[in-house]
Design a binder for these strands. Structure first.
Lengths: 193, 193
DNA sequence: TATCTGTTCTTGACACTGTCAAGATAATAA
DNA sequence: TTATTATCTTGACAGTGTCAAGAACAGATA
């Protein structure tokens, strides 16, 4: 079927990405897995980065979905924020290599791939939309709060991903999930109403 | 001089790293810059990862220094924490490629490089030591607070590095520095005494 | 039906990479 | 002086991304 190979290539690429790191995703190995010549992928993707960009775009789309369904599942404002944070970290843990890739502008220059950039902005706008509506505080504080929460979720995700947290976790009698839930809850509780 | 070439190679490597991304750091380019044959570096480093590990080790050493001098410059507990966070982000902004590399376990497996791992742990222990001493809260909350603050600093650094923040900053009349300071201060103010 | 045109894929080449193997050269020790 | 070791070079190999050119095939046009 038409465009069939394109999705075969993307599937093989995603598999390779999550099997190992991004360096395992080579143009030729992707072609090999799709059962075509080493040059065939070039018909659908300008270069290696174009494949990565497509994976990144899809990643941000899925992250956006996870975020919105997490937010929509709650009514209380702070519950929304906590669920949003947890879904963010959860996504990272479930798609480690992809998540890493999604924030590697040295690998995928979003300015060169508008579709991926648009998807990223859609995902980024969820926290801003959810938290940016608190009119009880001034704008600077509100913005700082949004960025801080987002940063915390992103940092949690990154540190958990790189195994830094599990190292430090050995002492405490806590699972990684508990730690993440605990951390998110501890900080959302301190947010202004 | 003995070991002279070793440091020439490390210097060339760090230069290459900060000039572009980590992929610009090739064994052969490093050798070329040091003015030696493509194989000479192998006398001092087992492979490419060994060079990266050495850069990472040095990076964590410097981060640790920055952290401690930031902490030591203040007496008040919350000032210490704020300064610590800012120094962390500052380090990332001043050494973007190196900072990225320091948290890329797919590139440098710390378990294979004990020296780098030790340096990393030394740097990681500063926030734990500074914040972990608050006896007014239970241990789980204390740990969550430490991890949360550290995550926020790490997330801020990462997001700032990848240009995500500067994108979102266009609306507000704020510099990146201001935003970072603001965010750190906003959240340290909410910490329990 | 026969010819043209564009899509889709293949084959071949090139310069680059990391790294193994082996040799050369120079410093040091006996 | 000779032997040994540290230091560096030369050469090779398989792997990579990607440019260039060609083959196979589809569909449209005549």
């Amino acid at each position: 079927m038409k465009e069939d190979l394109k999705y075969k290539i993307l599937k093989a690429s995603l598999d390779l990405l999550e099997e190992g790191d991004v360096s395992a995703l080579s143009m030729r190995e992707v072609a090999r897995r799709a059962g075509v010549s080493h040059q065939a992928p070039y018909h659908y993707f300008a270069d290696r980065e174009a494949i990565l960009a497509e994976l990144v775009r899809d990643g941000f789309e899925r992250l956006h979905q996870d975020e919105t369904s997490a937010v929509d599942a709650h009514d209380d404002q702070k519950d929304k924020i906590a669920a949003l944070g947890e879904s963010y970290v959860q996504f990272a843990l479930e798609n480690p290599s992809l998540f890493r890739l999604m924030f590697r502008c040295d690998m995928v220059d979003l300015d060169k791939h508008p579709d991926a950039k648009a998807a990223a902005n859609k995902a980024f706008d969820v926290p801003i939309r959810v938290m940016g509506s608190n009119s009880n505080v001034d704008e600077a504080t509100r913005f700082a709060t949004v960025i801080g929460c987002w940063s915390m979720a992103h940092g949690l995700a990154t540190l958990a991903l790189e195994g830094v947290l599990t190292n430090k976790l050995a002492d405490l009698d806590q699972s990684l999930d508990d730690l993440i839930r605990n951390t998110v809850k501890t900080f959302t509780a301190r947010l202004p109403d």
